[in-house]
């Protein structure tokens, strides 16, 4: 399968196979007015299978969100057909305003204006807890 090269844009590489659509939805790529290519289960030496997203436009990406969802992702920024920046995602220390705390006893359940915020408490097990009630975030 041939998918054309990008001149100016972003390639999200090394997405865990099967997670591509989650990333697509969370980054709200359907709202873009440019070409977006979603490649699922591409062959990979490193990963066996992987997903790739190519976005034919430069855009701001929330790296914390991306790192939280799939810390193995590589973000390639393309200018004039060349990779000018390659960024390896990692688990962010905090995830702010993206996930919702699901603990019905948490203060965020009654005070709607509070920003939901999670902190990384166990890097090895990838555990995030609500900064208010310590409830574990579910992906």
């Amino acid at each position: 399968m041939i998918i054309g090269q990008i001149k100016d844009g972003i390639v999200l590489d090394h997405i865990t196979a099967g997670r591509g659509m989650d990333i697509y939805k969370i980054l709200e790529l359907e709202k873009l007015d440019c070409t977006v290519a979603m490649i699922e289960r591409a062959a990979s030496h490193k990963m066996g299978r992987k997903d790739i997203i190519k976005i034919d436009k430069d855009m701001d990406i929330d790296f914390d969100v991306l790192g939280y969802i799939d810390p193995g992702i590589t973000v390639n920024v393309i200018r004039d057909g060349e990779v000018v920046e390659r960024r390896q995602m990692e688990l962010p220390e905090r995830v702010v305003g993206v996930l919702k705390c699901k603990n019905p006893r948490c203060i965020t359940s009654v005070e709607q204006e509070l920003t939901h915020e999670f902190k990384l408490t166990d890097r090895a097990r990838q555990i995030y807890r609500c900064v208010y009630c310590d409830h574990i975030a579910s992906k």
Binding site: R105, S109, Y132, C133
Partner: peptide, 27 residues
């Protein structure tokens, strides 16, 4: 003291003075 878990975290961020958690729900 507050029945909701994490309420003292909110208080500590806003009060401008030290806050002691005297019990927040079952937390």
């Amino acid at each position: 003291r507050h029945p909701k878990e994490g309420a003292p975290v909110v208080a500590a961020r806003k009060a401008g003075v030290p806050v002691i958690n005297a019990g927040d729900g079952g937390h």
